[in-house]
Amino acid sequence: MKVLVLIASVIASSAIAQDATTGATLFADRCAVCHGAQAAGNGPMAPVLTIQPTDLTQLAARNDGVFPTARVAARIDGRDPLVAHGSPMWVFGEFFDAQGPDIALQLPAGERIMVSGPIADLVAWIETIQVHSSE
């Protein structure tokens, strides 16, 4: 019985909910310099970059209204390399990878992927700033 309780607590700790507020702070500290304070791709470094930062508020709109959770997480953690980020995620790859245990991030279709806590928080915040065509 103790083994089942231990297993359940490990599973629960790996499914901690994302924190969009923490994600907003991480974004301001680590991403806004390129993507801009409002995540529209117009940060102060954008003019000097060869590849322009993506407008992160339009990700769902460009994906038939569905926020591409897995693609966003994979871009940040380097699983889906992006030349501009220098895969893994530019100079912050080690920060995002080294912050605590991985947690399960639920995708729109219900499956889960494992990501670090900071990446889950960033993804949660980016999802909250999506501008849909009706807005």
Rank of each mutant, 00 (worst) to 15 (best):
A37F: 06
Q99F: 01
I11F: 14
R71W: 02
V83L: 14
R71Y: 03
F27V: 05
T22I: 06
P101V: 09
A32Y: 02
S87W: 01
L59D: 03
S9M: 15
A15D: 09
L26R: 06
D55C: 08
A28F: 01
L26T: 05
V33K: 11
G93F: 07
A74W: 04
I51F: 13
I16H: 10
V48A: 13
G78F: 05
F92S: 07
R62Q: 15
L56R: 08
R62W: 03
A32M: 03
G100L: 02
T21L: 07
A32W: 02
A74H: 07
Q58K: 15
G78W: 07
A17W: 03
R62P: 00
D19H: 02
A70R: 14
S13Y: 09
I11S: 12
L59C: 09
P68Q: 10
E94R: 13
G93V: 03
T22F: 00
H85E: 09
V83P: 06
D80A: 15
A37L: 15
T54Q: 14
L59T: 06
T25P: 01
T54A: 11
H35L: 01
A84Q: 15
A73K: 04
P68W: 01
A32E: 05
A28G: 12
T57C: 03
A73V: 05
T57K: 02
D77V: 06
G43W: 09
S14K: 05
D29T: 06
A12N: 04
D80I: 01
A73D: 03
S9E: 12
V33R: 08
I16Y: 07
A20Y: 11
A8R: 03
A73I: 08
Q99D: 10
A17Y: 04
A84C: 02
Q99W: 01
R62D: 08
R71K: 13
D64Y: 11
A37C: 00
H35K: 09
